[in-house]
Computed example of a mutant assay.
Amino acid sequence: MVTVKRAAAGIAMVSLSLPAAASTTLSDTRSVGMGGAGVASANYLTASFHNPALATQNKNYDRFGMILPVVGGRVYDGNDLHDRVDAFQDLNDQLAGNPDLQDEWIAALKGLDNERIDGDANIGMVIAIPNRVVSTNFFVSSHVTALVTTDIDENDLNNQEIVNSSAQGIAGGTVDIGFTFAKEFIFLERDLSLGFSPKFQQILTYNYQDTIDTFDNDDFDIGSDYVDKSAFNADLGVAYALSRNVMLGASAKNLFSQSLKTNISNGSQATFEVNTQYTAAIAYNHPRFTVAADVDLNSNKPFKEHTYKTQFARVGLEADAWRMAQLRLGYIHSMTDYADDVLTAGIGLKPFGKFGLDIAALYGKDDSYGASAQLVFHF
């Protein structure tokens, strides 16, 4: 268990080092290209990331498959907070020698009140053995969410000698190591699939707070100050073939809610929460194309002390060219005020049929962007 725990912590620390700082649902690259949709449209390889019931969906009759690895990241800095903090710190350094900068200093500080940068990153892999008895996947999925916020003290506007205004960076992540088991039945003359993913879950959190005049992104590093704990969790899923081409899906991820307090940094602390996420979906699966739509049935609020939360509706399209290449497009609609809508696109290349490369990108207004890539093998 100690070895597994150290490995999980290592995976999470790699995630924190990715170029991203919560989530529009980064999981597998195929779904990222399709706007994050996957609860009714995933295949047996990607089912563990979306809906364990879909591990039965093996249209190519493969005997074995792998995703090794999938890597992705996303960041949002809508108001150029990073650059504006740097600009304020430059002004603060110059203020003592040039009092004429006082008005500019006050305006710069006011402009930093209640701002944020957010983002997420993921690493994962799957080894899948589909079969008619019980389809089985082994998967590892690491996801980290980070948030940087600012809080301006009104007293600083009247006294520039001591800065009490602060910036806080917090991160929370999970590493899931588990198995997916799925079985297909006949119900009302249609295929009904049920899936279950028990998993070992490592939860990690990190907190860094400092006054805004000395806050340094380089110090927002998980290092040795992170807090972690182990837990058991599970995902459930169901998929029903309404017709030959229409699939309905529903999933419940992280059935057992978890929480973990961060380390204390300059008197501040935060609580990272892992709550159950419910999603419903529908997909039209044609041999040449797939159209899918997912909707989150509840919001996700990763940090207890912050109002930041996300909830999304997603639509995606995949066009297939003789199983050798795929073009994917998607749209993510934010159902809260804490995220903007995002466009996605991706391609899949399988020149030899058994080996593939998927890449995808997402883009939204106000410096919201991300990317994902994965290698796929199936035999």
Rank of each mutant, 00 (worst) to 15 (best):
L112M: 02
L112E: 04
L112V: 05
D113K: 03
N114M: 07
N114Y: 08
N114L: 13
R116V: 01
R116N: 02
R116C: 00
I117K: 02
I117A: 04
I117P: 01
D118V: 11
G119D: 02
G119A: 00
D120G: 10
D120W: 05
D120C: 03
D120Q: 10
A121N: 13
A121T: 09
N122E: 07
N122P: 12
N122G: 07
N122A: 10
N122C: 12
I123K: 06
I123A: 08
I123E: 08
G124F: 04
G124S: 05
M125G: 15
M125K: 15
V126M: 06
I127N: 09
A128I: 04
A128V: 08
A128P: 06
A128M: 02
A128S: 11
A128Y: 01
I129P: 08
I129F: 13
P130Y: 02
N131P: 10
R132W: 08
R132N: 09
R132T: 07
V133Q: 08
V133I: 14
V133H: 12
V133E: 09
V133R: 11
V134S: 00
V134W: 05
V134C: 05
S135Y: 05
S135L: 04
S135N: 08
S135P: 06
S135K: 04
T136R: 12
T136M: 13
T136E: 11
N137L: 13
N137E: 15
N137S: 11
N137H: 10
F138S: 12
F139W: 03
F139M: 10
F139Y: 12
F139Q: 02
V140E: 10
S141P: 10
S141F: 14
S141W: 14
S141G: 14
S141I: 14
S142L: 02
S142C: 09
S142A: 13
H143G: 10
H143D: 14
H143L: 14
H143R: 15
V144S: 11
T145W: 14
T145D: 15
T145K: 14
T145I: 14
A146C: 01
A146N: 03
A146K: 03
L147Q: 04
L147K: 03
V148P: 02
V148K: 00
T149F: 01
T149K: 10
T149C: 04
T150F: 00
D151Y: 07
D151V: 06
D151C: 05
D151N: 13
I152P: 07
I152F: 00
D153R: 06
D153W: 06
D153M: 14
D153C: 12
D153P: 15
E154T: 14
E154L: 10
E154M: 13
E154Y: 15
N155W: 07
D156V: 03
D156C: 03
D156A: 00
D156R: 08
